[in-house]
Amino acid sequence: MDQPIEITTTKNLRGVSCPMNLVYTKVALAALKSGQVLEIILDNGAPINNVPGSVLKENHEILEKKQLPDGAWSVLVRKA
């Protein structure tokens, strides 16, 4: 059995386009401690195609990506 992932903060970035969704993701990550998990909700299309890659480049870990019923994506990021 997988342990449930403990989410520290959720940031709803529906309707927020690139690159401000990345800016808000970075701001939210800056407030967390290393190892804590941020959930970001990203729109389908450019946001889900771009933001996770940028987050990975900064050495954070993507734990999970799943599409929600409304088409947006929930992405779990563990802070480096």
Binding site: P19, V23, Y24, A31
Partner: peptide, 24 residues
């Protein structure tokens, strides 16, 4: 958080740079 939403937008092209970020 020292920056307003407007300031985050103003400096967004810096903040998204890996070498700069919010701290930079």
């Amino acid at each position: 958080m020292r920056y307003s939403e407007t300031q985050l937008e103003r400096y967004s092209r810096h903040i998204i740079l890996q070498e700069v970020g919010l701290e930079g």
